[in-house]
Design a protein around this nucleic acid. Structure first.
Lengths: 216, 216, 216, 216
DNA sequence: GATGAATGAGTTTTCATTCAT
DNA sequence: AATGAATGAAAACTCATTCAT
C-alpha cells in the first residue's frame, strides 16, 4: 500500500483491507502506522547495508574499481529484489523526526562509504583532486535518482493494463527544443531495463565523467 | 510554513496564522491547500526554467562547457534567492496526481536539456560514447541532492543562534582552503557554502568524473 | 449528558447529539471531553465557593451558629439552582489527575472552613473538645451524602414518567429487620424535599448529635 | 488493579498481567470485566454486612451505645482488613445499572440499620426528636468519607518510600498526642491512623454533635 | 473583500470479547 | 483447563472546506 499511495495517502484502513485482517490485528503487531512504516524502512535499510562492502586495498579483493562496480551491481539487484520497500524508502516521505533521523543516518553512511572510496582512489593516485563530500553527495543523488526511475519504469511496465480507477499514462512529451525528440514512445523504461548495464554506465560516469575536454 | 513542516504537516491553520489573515480570506485566494502549494511550486519552477539556457553551438555564446557552467551557477543562485520555494519543491512531497505530473514534467524537461547538452558534446567530439538518458538522470539526481544539502546546511546555520524574532542574516561562514576541513562538527555546511565553487565542482564531476584510470 | 450517564458512559457523540452541533464545533470550544467536564466542574465549584462565607466573630455578622445555618442554606440552594452540575461533581467520577486534584483541593478547602468553624466554636467555649479534622471530614461526608440523595430524589420525582428506553424504578425494599419498614413508598424524596428543613436538620445534627446520653 | 486505577482505567490486560494468566483464562472464570468487579464488590459487601449487628434491647447485649461503638469498630477493622476491596467499593465507580442497584441496596440497608438505632434510642428516651432518615444518611456519608480518607492516608503512607518491587510494610507512623500535630506536611494521615480512636470520635460526633449551645 | 463560526467526513487508536488450538 | 491470536464495534480527535454575516 505504501508503495502505491505513499505514506500519507495510505490509511490503516487501506492496510488492513489489503492484508485481509481486522483493525485490532494490525495494532496487535504494530503500535501505530508510523511504526509499521519505520519497520519496513529499517528492514530494507538493513538489507541494503548488507549489500555494500567497503573498498579494500587488499589485492585479493580485486581492483578498487572492480569492487565499486560489484557494489553498484549488488545494490541495484537488492533494490530490484525488494522493489516495494525500495520504492517507499526512495520516496523519502516525511514521517516523524525519528524515522527521518534513521534515514539521514543511513544516507550519511552511504556518503561516508563513497567518500572513503574516493579517498582510497586519491591515495592510489587514481582519483583526481576534488572535494570528496561533494562528490559523494553527487554520487548518492545520482544513484537515488537512477534507482527511483528504474523502479518507476518497472511499475509502469508491470501495471501496463491499469485497473479501472487508476490514472497513469504520462504525457510523454518533453525536451525543450523542437528538434530531435528521438523515439520517446516509452518515457524511461528502456535504458533502465538492464541492471548490470545500469551499474556499469553509472560507474563509468563516476569514473570518467562525460566530457573528454578539460574544464579550465 | 511548507518549508518548515512540509506539505502534510502544514495545516491551513498554520498558513493563516502565519499570514495573519482569516480562514475565509485564504479560500478567497486559493481554492484549496493543494492549490496554494501547486501555485508556489509552479512559480518556483517557472523561475528556475528561466535560469537555464539551452546549450548553443553559436560561437558567440561561448564554449559549450562554459555555457553549462553558467547554467549551473544560475540555477544555484536562483535556488539561493528562493530558498523557501526551492526547499518545498526539492522536498518532493506527494500531493495529488496533478501536482506530481507538473513536477515530473519539469524534471523531464531538465533531463531533456542535459541530454541535449551531452548530445551536442558528442557531435563536437568532446563527449564520450554513453547512454545520454542515464547520464542526464544521474546529473539531475546529483544536482538535486547537492541543492537539497546546500539548503539544509543554510537552514541549520541560520537557525543555529536564533535571535528571538529574527530569521535570516547569514554569517557567511566559509572555511578558507578546500583541503583541511578541520573541525567538521557540523553535518554538511562547509563544502556547500560557496555556490560558485559548488557549481564548478559539480561541473568538473560531470565532465571528468573522479577517477583517472580507465574502467575497462 | 454527564448528569444522566456519568463521565465515562457519556461519549462526545452523545454530547454533540444533545447539543445539536457538529463534532468539529465541539472541538472548537473544548479541546477534549475531559476539558468540557473540567470546565463544568470548575464552574460549579466556583459558584459553590461563592456561596460559603467564613464564620466571623464580628457581632454584626450574627451568631456563629446562625452564620453556619446560613452557609448550609446557601449551599443547598446553590446546589438546587445547579442540579446538573452539582450532580456530576458529587458523582465524583474518576477523570485524570488534574481534575482530581482540583476537586481534592476544593474539598480540602471545605474541610478547612468547617474546621475553622469548629475552632471558632472552641474559642468561644461553645464547641466541645474534639479532633477538628475528623469532625470536618465527617461533616463534609454527611453534607455530600445528603445533597446527593436530595438530587437523586428530585431526579426520581421529575423523571416520574420515564421516557421509553430508560431503566429507573428502584426496588424500594430495604431495611434489615422485618419490623417497621414504615411507609417507604417513595424511597428518599420526602425528607429531602424542603431545603431549609434539610439545612436545619443537618445543622442540628452537627451541633447536638443525636443522643442525649453521654458516651463514656 | 481496580484499587489503583479504578474500574474504567483498569483494562482486562492489566488484570491478566497482574494475575499472570492468559486472556482466555480470565474469561473462563468471569464472563466479563463487569462481572469480576461485581464479584469483588459483592464479596466485600457480604463481609461488611457480617460485621454489623442490629442494636439489641436485650440487656445481655450491653448498652445500645456500646453496641454502636462495637459496630463502628468492627466496620473500620473490616475495612482495614480488606483495604483493596474497600477502596474499590468506596470509590463508587459507575458501572452498569445492576451493580449500581446492588450497591444502592447495600447503602439503603446501612441507612435502615442506623435509622433503627436512632429509633431504638428514641424509644429509650436517649435520642432526641429528629428526622431519622436525614440522620442516618448523614451518618452514612460521614462514615464513608472518613473511611475513604483513612484508606487514602494509608495508601499515601505505604507508597511513600517505594522500595523497588516491594509494596507494603507500614511504618505505623503516628504522631504522639492528639493536640500538637506540628508538621502536618502529609494531607490527612495523622488523625486517621488509629482505627479505634476514629470509631470513638465518630460515635461521639453522632451522639453529642460538636457544639454545646442550643440551636434555637 | 474579509471574516471566523460551523461543519462532518475521515483517521487513528483502544479494548472487551471470542474461539480454534 | 489453559492459551493467546484475532476480532470489530466504538471512541476520540483532526482539519480542509463552506457560507452567512
Amino acid at each position: 500500500m505504501f508503495k502505491e499511495k505513499g505514506y500519507h495517502a495510505t490509511s490503516v484502513g487501506d492496510i488492513i483491507d489489503g492484508a485481509r485482517i481486522a483493525r485490532g490485528t494490525f495494532y496487535l503487531y504494530f503500535t501505530s502506522k508510523r511504526e509499521i512504516f519505520a519497520a519496513l524502512s529499517a528492514g530494507f535499510l538493513a538489507v541494503i547495508r548488507g549489500s555494500v562492502r567497503k573498498i579494500s586495498l587488499d589485492p585479493n579483493e580485486g581492483e578498487p574499481l572492480a569492487q565499486m562496480r560489484a557494489n553498484f551491481r549488488r545494490v541495484i539487484h537488492t533494490v530490484l529484489q525488494h522493489e516495494d520497500l525500495a520504492t517507499i524508502v526512495l520516496r523519502d516521505d516525511a514521517l516523524d523526526a525519528e524515522a527521518r533521523a534513521q534515514l539521514d543516518l543511513f544516507y550519511e553512511q552511504v556518503i561516508g562509504l563513497i567518500g572513503q572510496a574516493v579517498r582510497v582512489g586519491s591515495r592510489l593516485g587514481i582519483a583526481r583532486e576534488c572535494d570528496e563530500t561533494i562528490i559523494a553527495v553527487s554520487a548518492l543523488g545520482a544513484l537515488k535518482e537512477i534507482l527511483t526511475r528504474m523502479l518507476a519504469g518497472r511499475r509502469a511496465t508491470s501495471t501496463a493494463v491499469p485497473a479501472p480507477g487508476a490514472e497513469a499514462s504520462e504525457p510523454a512529451a518533453v525536451t525543450g527544443g523542437p528538434d530531435e525528440t528521438a523515439v520517446a514512445s516509452e518515457v524511461t523504461p528502456a535504458p533502465f531495463a538492464d541492471p548490470d548495464r545500469l551499474a556499469d554506465e553509472l560507474l563509468r560516469f563516476f569514473v570518467r565523467g562525460v566530457f573528454t575536454q578539460d574544464t579550465r
